[in-house]
């Protein structure tokens, strides 16, 4: 039954040109972006040279196993916004074309309609994980001076976190799309979310306990996967996942999908 519902969503999307354009751009940017790390390091080196400093970029193991995993995952996370916009388009289309209404008239329940969208989100998140893993594997094999299975399997648990991160954000986009129902406004809201939340948290920071900041939805993603680059400045980074940060992200993900369900259940479509 779940597979049947996923097929319905895929039938809608695979014949939609925007889907292929946005999907293609997403994976192209992910691939080319991930492969351009060395070029970025060269740029960094040139800039620093201008200040009379010198760094040996070859000593920064950006693409070495296991560093490559966390580096790629952290940077790749920024591109989830592209997928999110595609989700917004796919769900708000259903309201502007009124096809959500016809789907229900034709015999989908409101829950099933939502499930088709959630399953698609799971699929896009899983494909993102696979893409990033393949890109990481290729670049890692090219650049790593030492290749051993032990090094390759280190830090792989971060792919679970990456899956959560993408699925979390797509769930958020889906919920906003269902609540707002207009594509333009929803896309603007999705784009502004990080900024708005940052303004709120920074204004609150001095007045509330720290743990309260960590449970803000977009912040929960930042805490889930720490920025990995400070380790090249000889700083300690957290290279493991913590139960609390995973739990916070899971709770938000559940709530987003639940709010979407409530809205669909209660409204006249």
């Amino acid at each position: 039954m779940l597979l049947h519902l996923l097929k319905i969503e895929l039938k809608k999307m695979t014949n939609y040109r925007t889907f292929w354009v946005v999907g293609g751009l997403y994976f192209l940017t992910l691939g080319v972006g991930a492969a351009s790390g060395m070029e970025f390091l060269k740029l960094l080196a040139r800039t620093i040279e201008g200040f009379g400093q010198e760094i040996n970029i070859n000593r920064i193991p950006l693409y070495h196993f296991p560093d490559v995993w966390l580096n790629l995952i952290w940077v790749g996370g920024f591109l989830k916004i592209v997928l999110a916009i595609m989700i917004v388009i796919s769900v708000t289309n259903e309201f502007t074309y009124r096809t959500a209404r016809q789907n229900i008239i034709d015999g989908l329940s409101r829950q099933q309609f939502l499930v088709t969208k959630i399953l698609a989100n799971v699929m896009y998140s899983a494909i993102s994980v696979v893409m990033l893993f393949v890109i990481g594997l290729i670049t890692g094999l090219i650049y790593s001076p030492v290749v051993s299975l032990e090094l390759i399997v280190t830090d792989l648990e971060f792919f679970f976190a990456y899956f959560l991160e993408v699925f979390f954000f797509l769930s958020y986009a889906l919920m906003l799309g269902i609540l707002v129902q207009r594509s333009g406004l929803t896309i603007i809201l999705v784009l502004l979310t990080q900024t708005i939340e940052l303004i709120i948290t920074e204004n609150l920071r001095d007045h509330v306990p720290d743990w309260l900041i960590t449970i803000f939805p977009m912040k929960s993603i930042w805490y889930l996967i720490d920025i990995p680059f400070p380790r090249y400045a000889f700083m300690e980074i957290r290279d493991y996942l913590t139960f609390t940060t995973i739990a916070i992200v899971l709770v938000w993900t559940f709530l987003f999908n639940y709010f979407a369900y409530l809205k669909l259940k209660r409204s006249d479509i």
Binding site: K12, R101, Q102
Partner: peptide
């Protein structure tokens, strides 16, 4: 109901 509803791009 009311008017035909379909996916315009299909």
């Amino acid at each position: 109901l009311e008017h035909p509803i379909f996916y315009p791009y299909l």
